[in-house]
Simulated scan of single mutants.
Amino acid sequence: MNECMEIDKPLITIVMAVYEPNMQWLKEQLLSLEAQTYPNLELIIRDDCSPTVPFEQICECAATCIRSFPYEISRNERNVGSNQTFEWLTQQTRGEYIAYCDQDDVWLSEKIETLYQAVLSQNAVMSYCDMAVIDAKSDVIATSLRQIRPRLEYLTGSALMKSYFFRNCTAGCSMLMRADIAKQAVPFPKQTVADHWLAIWAAYSGSIAFVDKTMLKYRQHSRNQTGILSGVTDKESYCVKRILPLKERLNMLKERIDVQQDLQDFVQARIENRVLGIWKGRKFSSKEAGFEIIMNLLPEKLFQAIISRIRK
C-alpha cells in the first residue's frame, strides 16, 4: 500500500470489484479515479478470480494509474460473484464513507467531492447522482440515464425505504454512503443486487440526497450485469427474477427491523400471484402492481413480445 495522506477531510474508500476486465476500460476508470478532486481517498480492488485476465496485469494497471492516494489489491480464492465481493469489500474499508465503483465506467473529476458535499448539506446517509451513458467505444449515447430509461424516477428525502424496497433508482457506481451504515447492511441477500440492498438499508437508516447532475459515464455493453428486466423473457423468468427475490429481501429485512404487515401482505400477494392482493398493495409500487395485474391477463406470447419491446 502507498503511504497514507494527512488530510482534514474524512477518508473516503473507493471499492472496486473486478472480474475479467477489459483492460482499456479499466485503465480509463482508474485514471478517472486518479483525477478526483476530493483530497483524502483510498482504493481497494478485489479481483473475483478472473479466469483469463492475469492478476499481475490488473496490479500493473493500478500501479500505472493510481499515484495520488493509497490503494491495495487482492484476489478471491474462488469466484463468488459481485454481491459477495462487494460485501467483503464493504467490510474491508477504513474510510468514513464508501464510494462503490464498477470496473468499466468513467467518473467526472468532481464526482466524489460533489457527492460528499451533498451528504453534508442535506445531513444524509447516502447521496447519489445521475449519469451519462457511453458505449463500448466510449461514445456518449445519452447525457442522462433518464433518456434511455423514461420510467426512471429518482428519489430524494426521508422515509423512502418502502419505495426502495420494490424499485431501485440508485446504481452502486453513482452512490456515496456512510461506511457505518453500509456495514450494518452486511450480509447482503444473495438474490438481491448489492446496490439495491444498500439503497434499501440507507433509506431505512436516514435521508437520501440526490444530485441532479451527470457525475459519471456509465458504460453500457453486452456484459453488463444489470439492465431493464435483465434476464426476463417470459412470465416464468419474470417471476424468478423480479418476484421471488422479494421474499428473500423481506426475510432479511424482517430479521433486522419491524416490517409493517401491509407491506408483507403485498409481497405475499405478488409471490402467490393474487390479483386482488396486488391491487390492494398498489400504494407501495403502483407501476409494478399495474404491470403484474395486466401480465396475468395477457397470453404468454403477447407478454413475451411486450417484454422484448421494453428491453429494447
Rank of each mutant, 00 (worst) to 15 (best):
Gly277Pro: 04
Lys241Asp: 07
Ile112Pro: 04
Ile294Gly: 10
Ala289Asn: 02
Asn83Pro: 07
Ile278Met: 03
Tyr71Asn: 06
Glu56Pro: 03
Thr114Phe: 13
Asp234Pro: 11
Tyr218Glu: 01
Pro70Trp: 05
Gln29Thr: 11
Ile112Met: 03
Leu115Asp: 05
Ala99Lys: 09
Ser138Asp: 05
Gln268Gly: 10
Glu34Cys: 09
Leu250Met: 06
Ala182Ser: 09
Val18Ile: 14
Ser68Met: 03
Met16Val: 13
Gln225Cys: 15
Arg78Val: 15
Val80Asp: 07
Ile271Arg: 08
Cys239Gly: 14
Glu110Cys: 04
Arg178Thr: 04
Leu263Arg: 06
Asn168Phe: 08
Ile141Tyr: 01
Glu77Gln: 15
Met295Gly: 02
Gln36Pro: 03
Ser82Phe: 09
Glu3Tyr: 13
Ser121Phe: 13
Gln147Trp: 12
Ser68Glu: 04
Ser205Tyr: 08
Leu108Met: 15
Glu110Val: 14
Ala62Met: 00
Trp88Thr: 14
Phe266Val: 01
Tyr218Trp: 10
Ser121Tyr: 09
Asn224Pro: 10
Ser144His: 10
Ser158Tyr: 11
Asn83Met: 11
Ala118Pro: 01
Arg219Glu: 00
Ser174Phe: 08
Arg167Glu: 14
Ser50Val: 08
Gln122Pro: 03
Tyr238Met: 03
Ser144Phe: 06
Asp8Met: 10
Ile58His: 02
Arg256Gly: 08
Ala35Tyr: 06
Ala185Ser: 04
Glu153His: 12
Ser127Gly: 01
Leu160Trp: 05
Val18Gly: 01
Gln103Lys: 07
Ala62Asp: 05
Met215Phe: 07
Ser127Glu: 05
Pro21Ile: 09
Cys173Phe: 02
Ser308Trp: 12
Arg223Ile: 10
Asp195Tyr: 05
Val259Phe: 11
Leu198His: 03
Met215Ala: 07
Gln261Ala: 15
Thr156Asn: 11
Met295Ser: 02
Thr85Gln: 00
Pro150Cys: 03
Arg167Asp: 06
Ser163Trp: 08
Gln24Asn: 11
His196Thr: 10
Lys254Gly: 09
Leu115Asn: 06
Val186Tyr: 13
Ala142Arg: 07
Pro187Gly: 12
Arg146Gln: 13
Arg94Glu: 14
Gly157Ile: 02
